[in-house]
Design a protein around this nucleic acid. Structure first.
Lengths: 217, 217
DNA sequence: CATTTGAATGAACGAGCATTCATTGGTTGC
DNA sequence: GCAACCAATGAATGCTCGTTCATTCAAATG
């Protein structure tokens, strides 16, 4: 009655559309990377996590390499789409509202999940030596920073902030979010999602006091 | 005439003190992690990079696991010692001078080396799944943040900054430095050491305007 | 219901890797 | 100059893991 196949008996073999199987395997891969790390993630573990047979990953993806790549694209794509949706000029939100939405988004329970952040950093850790990963990771960051830069320039125009450099602030905000994610991942006891959000909000409040107010207390 | 053994003929076999060999191997491990990533780093590559025989790593370190651990400790230890030297109350630097020294240190060519930062993130990427790595990584960050917190509190006392929270600022600065390192590693073309330093300085200048001046231009 | 199709399976294979250890030879003390 | 010692070597070993593919079986077709 439940699709969540996982361990136990071989059950009855089901045939499902390719898209469903791929998603199943990508989800399992994320879980394995978060739990066992990049180098501890084996095909046997991934397929077991998905409740499927060993050979299936090579059937739907061509190789382990490709499965990992699509997993990275899944995570980065999700982030980019979410951010774009907030910053796209089609939405009728004010500049201030968009800033607040970005803050909420970056530290939401949908984006800043332990599993997803772990995947993020697992690939970043390997990026230096894998040109393909490096390109995807840097591109994601670059696009995010660029979109923020546009928003910040709007804010500067609106409120005549003096001596403000949108590019520098966007660079700082992007780095700050990455760093906060890292610290939440490594030491969740020491830095909660709420605290991280406060740090990030204070950063934007310092740069754009007319748009974002510091957390009080 | 040169100690830099590297590739080529077997040369003459030399007997060297344990400490020298260990350092040789740790240096080679860092280079391999930076070049081939954590999962691409093999004992064969490390020992070849060091210009030594395959078996030597297991002779001086007990296993690959231990070699990797000591490599991590080498990098984190170096950072901690450098930071402590600057912040230790024994030095007779002013609070402002210490802040400036920390900025210079965090983006110096000794600390923010590509190789070292790559090692840093390779381990961070695996930390989630390896309790030992996690403990070392989080401890390093925790100590660094704590020391900064003390310095920032001194600054707050000195200049009566209102509504300033040293812990939040320290948390933010630490995360910012981590994030900037990450972006320098992934996209050095996009973020230079100099630019990263500017972003970090602007962050401290916003929090402690009487101590640190923003970069002009 | 019989037949065809191709998704799904998992045993078997082989490449790559960490680790071992018998052998080599540089170094030290006599 | 001669042993005795032990750092250093690297071929050999055994294990882990990605990949293959003959076989199985659920679903679609007529």
């Amino acid at each position: 009655m439940n699709d969540k196949t996982n361990s136990t008996a071989p059950a009855t073999r089901r045939v499902l559309p390719k898209g469903v199987r791929k998603e199943q395997l990508i989800k399992a891969t994320m879980k394995c990377i978060a739990r066992y790390g990049m180098s501890g993630t084996t095909m046997a573990l991934v397929t077991k996590e998905a409740g499927l047979s060993l050979g299936i990953a090579n059937l739907h993806f061509e190789s382990k390499e490709k499965l990992l790549l699509e997993t990275l694209l899944h995570v980065t794509g999700e982030y980019n789409r979410g951010q774009t949706k907030i910053l796209d000029n089609d939405s009728d939100l004010s500049v201030a509202a968009r800033m607040e939405a970005i803050l909420q988004f970056d530290f939401s329970s949908k984006v800043a999940t332990k599993d997803k952040v772990a995947v993020w950093f697992a690939f970043w850790g390997e990026a230096k030596s894998r040109p393909t990963y490096q390109k995807i990771c840097s591109n994601t960051d670059f696009m995010a920073e660029d979109a923020l830069c546009a928003l910040f320039n709007q804010a500067i125009d609106e409120s005549n902030y003096v001596d403000s450099n949108a590019a520098i602030i966007a660079s700082g905000y992007t780095a700050l979010v990455d760093g906060l994610w890292l610290n939440m991942l490594i030491a969740p006891k020491h830095l909660s999602r709420k605290q991280a959000l406060q740090v990030a909000r204070d950063y934007l409040a310092a740069a754009f006091p007319h748009h974002i107010k510091r957390t009080t207390g």
